[in-house]
Design a protein around this nucleic acid. Structure first.
Length: 116
DNA sequence: AATGTGACATACC
DNA sequence: TGGTATGCCACAT
């Protein structure tokens, strides 16, 4: 390992985020903060959202709809091709949404830091 | 190189 | 309780 890596733990942070998101199981969801924490950058939750934004331009798409904020709120719905798409994708997976809020969020939550 | 930008999270009224 | 303020930092420009 180069010293550079030691002092600069980031390196393709987006790529790491994409990799984790790709592992979220069907019918489960996780949060921006959980992903950031798993990557050892607990304070970079915002950047995870920023990465999701960029994920739409990705050639190989990832399940960005399975990432919500820590309250189970669909804060990113505006960034899909149309506003209700995120909710629709979740409903397809058996996740109920009401007023942008995931029902039974606690039981749908999947934490990479615990399950990987 | 410097500055601006949030799909967040927390802390404090 | 809800609403504002504030710290945060990888990336874009």
């Amino acid at each position: 390992m180069y010293m550079k890596d030691y002092f600069e733990p980031k390196e393709d942070f987006f790529e790491k985020v994409f990799a984790v998101v790709a592992l979220i199981p069907f019918g489960r969801v996780t949060t921006y903060g959980a992903i950031a924490e798993y990557l050892g950058a607990k304070k970079s939750a915002r950047v995870v959202g920023y990465a999701m934004n960029a994920s739409h331009a990705l050639p190989n798409k990832i399940p960005a709809h399975r990432v919500v904020n820590r309250n189970g709120l669909l804060t990113g719905k505006m960034h899909f091709s149309y506003p209700t798409q995120m909710e629709e994708l979740l409903q397809i997976e058996g996740i109920k949404v009401e007023n942008n809020q995931i029902i039974d969020f606690k039981n749908k939550l999947w934490l990479p830091i615990e399950e990987l």
